[in-house]
Amino acid sequence: MDTSIILQMVVSGAFMGLVYALIAYGFQLTFATSKSINFGQGELVMLSAFFSLTLLNLGLPYWLMVPGGLLFGAALGLVVERAGVRLALEQKSEGWILLTIILGLLGFSAAENIWGRDDRPFPTPISADALHVFGINITPLEISVAIGVFLVMGAVELFKRKTLMGKAFEAVSADRDAAELMGISATRTIMLSYGLSGMVAAMAGILISPITTVGPTMASALILKAFAVAVVAGLDSGFGVVLIGIFLGALESLTSFYLGSGWREAPGLVLLILALAVRPNGVFGKSTMRKV
């Protein structure tokens, strides 16, 4: 087999992997503050993409659409927190898993009926014509994905490390009770984390849509791989998701090349189950301790 084809596969897979990493990063944000994640995050990606598409169709220029889409994603994140997560966390039950699945289903059905079941193209000013770099084809679209992913993750990390609010965010994840005693409201911090997580998901939707087209099912495969990346890397692993995301993206690209596109989803799923067997807290995760 020609190495350049393999390399090509690896590189374009890696770009997709960055999007998985971005969504997985959104899971980390909410997991840090509340030990919960939104199982309907895929629907959030999809709804934000549809909303952004509508903004574009209304005649908004691309660069104004982006903040609009992000705001919409953040708002959806807040809805999920209020309707799906808060009550269950107060009751210390795991009802939130069911509730976020349910809210996702509701969003899916709404999208199906509002925007239709067909896939639609997502216009973008960025060219999809390939550039040749060292014998590999790379499109500016792919590069824009990478830039977008790092911009958003960088911005959120900067926020977490350099602002007091961000430090408060970390304080809540370290010790919720103690943070409350400092005057930091845990409820609001969890809301913030869901808002940020929704925003991150929206960004993923906007970045990926020009490549995959927009449709109600656009995120169902995407989200499974984001779950896999989050669990394999560890739900508290920070930038570990980027490495695992790139690895998984490349791996599945190779898998679909050798075994057929139907097997595309398999490596992520196998990796997830294997990771739980070998390192339940993820490759980069911290081990947890039982307490009495």
Binding site: T163, L164, M165, M182
Partner: peptide, 27 residues
Amino acid sequence: RKVFGPLSVEDNLLLGAFNHLPRFFGF
């Protein structure tokens, strides 16, 4: 004691003053 284990000593102290510091920059 309940200090914030993963955060630095100075960050712990700054969070103590959370209520009367600007939330974003210049704190």
